[in-house]
């Protein structure tokens, strides 16, 4: 990759991408047999869409990820030696994740592995918690509330997200700190004698994580539930179903794509979240993303950081695909 030929290849890649998207656009016409992509959107807009989407996905998504994956298989070397004889592909970064050493494989790297699985497991719990929190809210907004009330609720939901993610995490610190708002209220009401160390118990972190991507759960759910005709619920009720039966057998199956979509988004983003664990994590909490961050910016070991990031990404994607498979949903359905 690091030769003169590679530069030409890089120049040609955008053209290749545009050509690929062009091919997809014309394939779509042949399969649907109707109006072509260009005819539907006009030549100028069609060209713009193909070029812009092609270049965006290539330069912002595909190439950085590929170069990161490639980097993860290289050793950390001083700048002078990059491209030199010692710059060979190696598994040492992955070995480090598993064994805590680039060479020795006698002990497991239990701290990192533990943090990794804890992150995955906690992300699942956060996702489940968000789903439980948002489902009633989304159902109320989609089926029961009047339009005015819905608009107000949406505004209340969105407005806090105008604040930067890191600042929001600090706001949670203010609430959950030992001398913070929540402890002041609880002691003031006489409910507790001593302040509770919410941050040390990681309650602050989990609250912050749950809140961080809440909107990404609400909106897919709301969309899915809004398209459910009210008559479906009435029909189930008319046939004698109690409310929980209606939700379990009529509403939730109908909203399944929306639920899957929201859960996927929240799970992926939570497992990769950085601000909340950094700001709200207690002294003993070990979230995986700060470890990845440290590989890059504390150890200045970018190849190792890339390996860690890739492990997380791969595991999350595999997990999501497995769950979708189990729930008999396709990727196409959840993006509807």
């Amino acid at each position: 990759m690091r030769s003169a030929g590679a530069h030409y290849l890089l120049m040609l890649l955008p053209l290749a991408v545009v050509a690929a998207f062009w091919a997809m656009a014309s394939l779509e016409r042949r399969r649907d047999g109707g109006v072509s992509f260009t005819q539907r959107n006009g030549a100028a807009i069609a060209t713009y869409l193909v070029v812009a989407v092609g270049l965006w996905s290539l330069f912002m998504i595909v190439l950085p990820q590929l170069s990161m994956i490639e980097l993860s298989f290289r050793p950390k070397l001083p700048t002078a030696q990059i491209g030199g004889p010692r710059d060979v592909y190696t598994l040492q970064n992955y070995r480090y994740f598993l064994f805590g050493s680039t060479t020795d494989t006698s002990h497991w790297n239990s701290i990192h592995i533990h943090a990794f699985f804890l992150t995955i497991f906690a992300s699942i719990l956060v996702t489940a918690f968000d789903l439980a929190l948002c489902y009633p809210l989304a159902f109320y907004m989609a089926q029961a509330a009047r339009p005015r009330r819905v608009r107000l609720l949406l505004l209340l939901l969105i407005a806090p997200y105008w604040v930067n993610e890191v600042l929001r995490a600090f706001a949670f610190r203010v609430i959950f700190a030992t001398g913070g708002v929540l402890n002041a209220v609880l002691t003031g009401l006489g409910l507790i004698g001593q302040p509770i160390d919410f941050l040390g118990l990681d309650i602050g972190m989990y609250a912050g994580l749950s809140y961080a991507y809440l909107l990404l759960m609400v909106f897919p759910l709301y969309n899915a539930l809004e398209s459910l005709p009210a008559s479906q619920i009435e029909a189930a009720r008319d046939l004698g179903a109690p409310w929980w039966h209606i939700h379990l057998n009529v509403v939730i199956p109908f909203a399944k794509p929306g639920i899957a979509s929201g859960c996927t988004l929240v799970f992926m983003l939570t497992s990769g979240a950085l601000a909340a664990p950094l700001v709200l994590g207690g002294p003993r909490s070990l979230w995986f993303t700060p470890i990845v961050y440290d590989r890059f910016y504390q150890a200045f070991n970018w190849p190792q950081g890339s390996a860690y990031a890739f492990i997380l990404l791969l595991t999350c994607v595999a997990f999501v695909l497995a769950v979708l498979r189990l729930t008999k949903l396709s990727l196409g359905e959840i993006t509807r």
Partner: peptide
């Protein structure tokens, strides 16, 4: 038992 105008059959 009510038969709805749009029938309200369960699609899934």
């Amino acid at each position: 038992a009510l038969i709805f105008q749009n029938l309200a059959l369960f699609p899934m």
